[in-house]
Each structure stands twice: as C-alpha cells, then as structure tokens.
C-alpha cells in the first residue's frame, strides 16, 4: 500500500515535470530561474535532511559534494560527450547527472568513514573543512578553470530533470525512513550505544546516510552547473552549505514536508525582498531569527524527544 502510493507519486511527478517542460519557454525567464532554483534547493535541503535530520549527523560540507557533482558533470558534458551526436544529448546528460552523483557519493564515502567517528561539533568542523578543501583544490586545478571558473557548460537543465530529481529524493527518503533500515537511522540518532547493543552497526548507518545525501547533493550540483552554464569555486563556499543547513533547520530537522516548504520559502523570500534594496538581507536575517524564536523546532515539526530537543517527522 505504502509502496503503491509512492509509485503513484513518482509517476505523477515524471508526467507533471515533463508537461511543465513543454511550456517553460513561455515563462518569464526570471520566474523560470527562480522555479529551477527552488527545485535544486529542494534536492539539496532534502538530502541534507537525511544526514542532519534523520541520522542526526551534523554536516556542514554539503556545498563540497555539490561542487564535486557540478564539476564532474561539467567535465563530462563539455569534454567526453561533446563530440558525440547531438541526438544523444539527453541520455548523455542523464548519464552526466548520474556520474556527478556517483563521484560525489564516492567522496562522501571517503570523508564519511574517517569523520563519522566524530560527533556533534567535531563532525561539523570536519565536514566544514572538507567542503573548503574541495573548493581550494578546484581553485588550483587549471583544467577545471581554477579561480576563473568553468565556462561553456551546455544549458541542459530544465523543469523535467530538476523536478524529477526532486521527486526521486523525496521518494527515496520517504521510503527509506519507513523501512526497518530507516528506523535504524532514528535509533542511531536517539542513542548510538543502545543502537549498537541491539545489533545495528552505527558506523554503517551513518555512512549510508552520508553517502546517500552526498549522491543527491552531487546531482543537484550537476543540475545547477547545467543551468547557470558557468561555475566557479566561490559558488560552493561554506556560505552555500550554511544556506542549506538553514533550510533544514527552519523547515524542521527530520520533517520531509517541512524542509521542502522551507526550501521553497527561503528561495523566494530573498527575491521578494529585492524591493527593499539595501535592507534586503537585514530583513531576511530578521525573519530567520523570528522564526527560530517562535518555532525553535522548525516550521513543520512536532516536538522531538531526547538530547537534541528538536523535532520528529511531520
């Protein structure tokens, strides 16, 4: 029954995003851009929610995984794939997105295995450091354009790919957390020692969450790269990671719907506030502070028990 419902969800998401793609050229380009960003931010925030919210591992390196996905896919589409018949553009783009995700997931594994032994603040700092290392390495790699950035990426992202990915993230996470394996995530978050004592390998659970989250962050990065067509390391600084963390916290850690909602809200809000000119970011920050004071558990979340004093699912 549960599976059934989520398959319908996925199928309708495919159809809807495909239909939306047919009319997207009629849309005002500014709105088009905002909607694309909303989709990408849903992917980023939801995938981080899996790590921070469900598995309880505070990661600040999401922009790093995004960068890995962005550069990997960009190298593929501009290099290897560019000489192939243009008719194959679409399947090759899908392949590039997938590769972006896989390479990001591999980096997730690489970072996760040593650093997930750490907890809380220590893990946050380690992942923050990792994100910055990625950025600095890219900045110094000439074949990736260094600090000048990577230009000439074909504009292949559209509603279809962006919202298909968003649907895939939501599908994966909602199916995962209702499974026994997914409940192990909550178990590890609630009490790692107790989880170990009933036979859950907490390291494996944490690494799984981390790698899955990194995969989707990589795909999001690839989608982003093929929308803006120009990427440079500065776009993937720790500020971007913080932006995603804020989305997760405002939405409610561990709440699927809450995080989607806040990804939409926090993408639109700065645009709406553009009319305020120089006061824009002041008001934006004020709103965030007010939300955190009035809804410390996030917009959509119920109270959560235990050490973290935050939330549960919707």
């Amino acid at each position: 029954m549960k599976i059934h419902k989520s398959v319908i969800f996925l199928a309708s998401a495919i159809v809807l995003s495909f239909l939306a793609t047919l009319v997207e050229h009629r849309l005002n380009p500014y709105y088009f851009q905002i909607i694309i960003y909303i989709g990408i931010n849903i992917v980023l925030a939801s995938s981080l929610n899996l790590i921070n919210g469900f598995a309880g591992q505070f990661s600040l390196g999401h922009a790093g995984f995004m960068a890995v996905g962005a550069y990997t896919s960009a190298v593929l589409t501009t290099g290897l794939f560019s000489s192939v018949n243009p008719l194959l553009n679409i399947p090759l783009f899908a392949l590039a997105l997938l590769c972006g995700g896989i390479v990001a997931a591999a980096f997730g594994l690489l970072v996760g295995i040593p650093s997930l032994r750490l907890k809380g603040d220590y893990l946050a700092i380690t992942t923050l450091g990792f994100g910055e290392i990625i950025r600095v390495v890219v900045q110094n790699l000439d074949f990736l354009g260094g600090a000048r950035g990577f230009t000439g990426i074909p504009k292949l992202s559209n509603f279809f790919w962006v919202f298909l990915t968003a649907a895939a993230v939501i599908f994966t996470i909602s199916n995962l957390i209702n499974s026994t394996y997914g409940k192990a995530f909550t178990a590890v978050r609630d009490d790692e020692i107790a989880a170990e004592s009933i036979g859950i390998s907490s390291t494996r659970v944490k690494v799984t969450a981390f790698v899955t989250g990194a995969f989707f962050a990589g795909v999001a990065g690839a989608l982003y790269a093929h929308f803006v067509t120009y990427i440079n390391p500065a776009q993937f600084s720790f500020l971007k990671s913080f932006e995603i963390v804020v989305m997760v916290i405002i939405g409610g850690m561990g709440s699927i719907l809450g995080v989607i909602f806040s990804a939409v809200l926090l993408t639109i809000l700065p645009e709406v506030l553009r009319t305020m000119a120089q006061y824009r970011m002041v008001i934006y920050s004020l709103l965030l502070i007010i939300i955190m004071i009035t809804r410390p558990q996030g917009l959509f979340a119920r109270r959560r028990f235990g050490k973290h004093k935050a939330i549960l699912k919707i």
């Binding site: 026994t180 409940k183 192990a184 909550t186 178990a187 978050r189 609630d190 009490d191 020692i193 107790a194 989880a195 004592s197 009933i198 036979g199 859950i200 959560r304 028990f305 235990g306 549960l312």
Partner: peptide, 26 residues
C-alpha cells in the same frame, strides 16, 4: 548476547512497538 544498557537507553522518538521491533533488527 543481548545487552540492556544502563540508564534505560531506549529510542525516544520511536514508539514502544517500534522500539521492540528494533530489538529484532538482526
């Protein structure tokens, strides 16, 4: 070997039933 650790380390965010089911994780 099954260990019921000190300090009642139960899973606060899972229900009683889910807690018990997690005991049968393996």
């Amino acid at each position: 070997i099954s260990h019921a650790p000190e300090g009642r380390m139960i899973f606060a965010n899972l229900t009683v039933k889910e807690n018990l089911e997690m005991g049968a994780y393996l």
